[in-house]
Amino acid sequence: MVAFTLNGKRVSVKTEPATPLLWAIREHLKLTGTKYGCGAGLCGACTVHVNGKAVKSCQIEISSVQGARVLTIEGLSNGATHPLQKAFIAEQVPQCGYCQSGQIMKAAELLAKNPKPSRDQIVAHMNGNICRCGTYNRIVAAIQRASKEG
């Protein structure tokens, strides 16, 4: 049994300690906004925050989040009101949408530590998150918009 805080609520999961956090969040706790893309830490679709840091949840064993604060896309805001979510809507960023939770969670980490990132800083920070629909430039525009509009 592993207990942690998920989007501000105490939760516990009964599973093997080595279970990837991704599958615990998605299938055990049924928060499906966090996506499975590669299972190997290569695409970023499963990005969540653990104690404020963006991690690839497919690479994190559930046992390592005992007592930690885990934040997923569902907990980022109430009703898509986080500045990044508003900016992603304004820029109409998502296409198929499957990678977007991961993109937004990764970008949220950046803005939390660097509210005014340069384009190069954005690209360097986001490079681990693949988008096959190729929304990269729109993601950059949305992050810049969120940075400006807060």
Binding site: T32, G33, L76, A80, Q85, I89, P94
Partner: peptide, 21 residues
């Protein structure tokens, strides 16, 4: 006009078959 699928795709609520329970 805004695409109807956008909001669900930024708040994690859009459902793909992999999300069905």
């Amino acid at each position: 006009l805004p695409r109807r699928d956008i909001v669900g795709k930024v708040d994690g609520s859009a459902k793909f078959s992999i999300d069905v329970m």
